[in-house]
């Protein structure tokens, strides 16, 4: 137990993960004896996560022409021509549309890069394979060593199926899937209630690290993140909190490996 009293500023910094490791451990120990305070901090973390989940989708939106410094100020002016931006950007898109229809499509297409792109791939893979009653996986869990070896070779880094028993999930197997960024590994898990959860993993070329972000589309929900050049997606149709806990389990095991 720590001799130094814990301060409110330290508790706030603890919520933000900004305490030095030794002090963080001391504060953790103190919180174990102060459950009301621990609950209060946990509520602050939930607030922060809810705020991020609400606002992070803005990052995945295409950046409007008027906010793209690379196209040059004169061109931006010409396109936007003054206020308001709404009308101006619509005019800008018309101009582009005149120059070539494909350009317009590029601006309005859903994101294909970053963890937003990974989320779309993972959701499609989950939708196709988790519901396949004939052959959801290429290699079953009793060949896990071969499966891990296959993924590690194709993704050019050591990958192995995490143990998700703590979330009541057991591995049923996996398969290699194609993405526009190259090969990706898909592990499928199932719980006692028969719910499937997919873990999708592939290398990230540009955004090598990204925090955990809530995603969802067409009734499939999940979480994405990237650590050290490897991108992850945990998806399913189970409740969001359950998927979040599962994603945290996966992340912890890959960080330890």
């Amino acid at each position: 137990m720590s001799e130094t009293p814990v301060t409110e500023a330290e508790l706030q910094a603890h919520v933000d993960g900004r305490l030095p490791p030794e002090r963080s451990a001391e504060v953790e120990a103190w919180l174990a004896d102060h459950l009301d305070e621990a609950r209060r901090l946990s509520s602050y973390r939930s607030q922060r996560d809810a705020l991020r989940a609400a606002l992070d989708p803005v990052l995945d939106e295409p950046v409007p022409l008027a906010l793209d410094l690379r196209i040059g100020e004169a061109a931006r002016r010409r396109w936007t021509g003054g206020r308001p931006l709404v009308a101006a950007s619509a005019a800008g898109l018309l101009l582009l549309g005149g120059a070539g229809g494909w350009t317009l499509r590029d601006w309005s297409a859903p994101p294909s890069v970053g963890t937003a792109g990974l989320a779309r791939e993972a959701i499609s893979s989950f939708a196709v394979y988790a519901s396949d009653s004939t052959r959801p996986v290429e290699l079953a869990a009793d060949h896990q060593r071969a499966l891990d070896g296959w993924f590690s070779e194709r993704l050019s880094r050591p990958v192995s199926a995490p143990n998700l028993e703590a979330a009541g999930l057991h591995l049923i197997g996996g398969r290699l899937v194609a993405s526009e960024h190259g090969p990706a590994g898909l592990y499928l898990y199932r719980n006692a209630a028969g719910e499937s959860v997919a873990l999708y993993v592939r290398p990230m070329e540009v955004e090598k690290t990204d925090r955990m972000t809530s995603r969802g589309e067409k009734g499939v929900r999940g979480w994405t993140w990237a650590d050290d050049g490897l991108g992850f997606g945990v998806f399913g149709s189970a409740p969001d909190a359950y998927l979040h806990d599962t994603a945290n389990l996966v992340r912890a095991q890959f960080r330890k490996a």
């Binding site: 946990s42 939930s46 996560d49 909190a241």
Partner: peptide
Amino acid sequence: LRPSLRIVS
């Protein structure tokens, strides 16, 4: 804002 179990903070 329900508190969710966080394994990793």
